[in-house]
Amino acid sequence: MFPLFLHLTDRLVVVIGGGAVGRRKAAAVLDAGAHVRLVCLESLPPDETHPALDWRTEPYAAAHLDGAVLVFAAATLDVNARVVADARARGLWVNSASDPEAGDFFVPAVVRRGDFVVAVGTGGAAPALAREIRRRLNEQFDDDFGRWVALLAELRPLVLEHVQDAERRRLFFERWSRWEWLERLRRDGADVVRTGMLQELRDGGGAASSPL
């Protein structure tokens, strides 16, 4: 298995099957910024509309895969087998909910906090274990952790702009990645931590930095 993250923003993902599994797959890739074409025999639930969701209540046909970069087969066994064969014939990566080994990839359990993403997979061998690990990670990497990551992303360009020495830049990034900053954020809030980091940048840049 080779783990990787895919950029799906504004790209078409096709999901075949409108049951609970198919709708979960669709929701996940919509959250990743994809456009989704979902094909099934069920009607669109009124509370699951989305501007990037093209829900088609009709039988599956190979033409539904036109323009896709990724395919999920989450329908019946026979339909899933057809979807896998059609996707393979078109050179498309496909995931089969009913026969994971027949597809090209597995979908991991994911913890997402803004730009911070942890994916946990067991190669399809123990999905329940992957979900339990995700539950535990969700407790550890809470919303404050996501705010810390967002703050680091916000301040990174300032360090790159104002600190010319590569070693000094590395030290800033390493110091700000220490867990003490997260604990301070949880205690005092993101604004206080931002102020502290900016002050450290002003005080610690030395001759290698230009003034902020």
Rank of each mutant, 00 (worst) to 15 (best):
A81R: 15
A75Q: 05
L70G: 07
V79N: 07
A75F: 03
V110D: 02
N80S: 12
D47F: 09
R156N: 06
A28V: 04
H7Q: 07
G114S: 11
G121C: 10
T122E: 02
D142G: 06
R186H: 01
G19L: 05
A81E: 13
N138G: 15
E58D: 12
G67D: 05
F173Y: 15
D165P: 04
D10K: 09
A166R: 15
L8P: 00
A89N: 01
V84G: 00
R178C: 10
R136V: 05
G91N: 10
L151H: 05
A26L: 06
A68L: 05
R147V: 01
F173E: 10
L12Y: 02
R112W: 01
L12N: 04
Q164W: 13
G103F: 13
P45M: 09
G204I: 02
V149S: 00
C40L: 03
V69M: 15
M1C: 02
Q164C: 04
G103L: 13
E200G: 09
G18R: 14
R170N: 12
E174R: 11
G19E: 08
L77R: 14
D47P: 06
W179H: 09
D115Q: 14
E183C: 03
R113H: 06
A63K: 11
A85V: 03
A102C: 08
L129N: 02
D10S: 13
V29S: 00
A166N: 06
L44E: 12
R135D: 13
L137F: 14
D10P: 07
G123L: 09
H162G: 10
S210R: 15
W148T: 10
R202N: 12
E58H: 13
E139S: 13
R178Y: 13
R37W: 01
A32E: 09
G206T: 11
A34M: 13
G103E: 05
D104G: 11
D99V: 12
H162F: 08
G67S: 05
P45E: 07
G91W: 10
W93L: 15
R37L: 02
A190P: 06
A81K: 07
V79E: 08
V29P: 01
L155K: 07
Q199Y: 13
T49Y: 05
M197T: 00
L4C: 09
W55Y: 13
A207T: 11
F105Y: 14
L160I: 08
R37F: 02
F106Q: 03
Q199S: 14
Y60R: 03
G33T: 09
R202Q: 10
R11V: 04
E180P: 02
W148I: 08
A89E: 04
V107D: 04
R134L: 09
G67V: 00
E101L: 13
A73Q: 00
T49N: 03
A75Y: 04
G17L: 11
R194V: 14
V149C: 06
D188F: 06
V29G: 01
D47M: 10
L70H: 10
L160G: 08
R202C: 08
V163C: 08
P46T: 14
A61Q: 15
A61F: 02
P51R: 11
L185H: 04
R37N: 00
D10Y: 09
L65N: 06
W93Q: 10
N138M: 11
A130Y: 01
G22I: 06
V107S: 11
R113T: 04
V36N: 11
L77M: 02
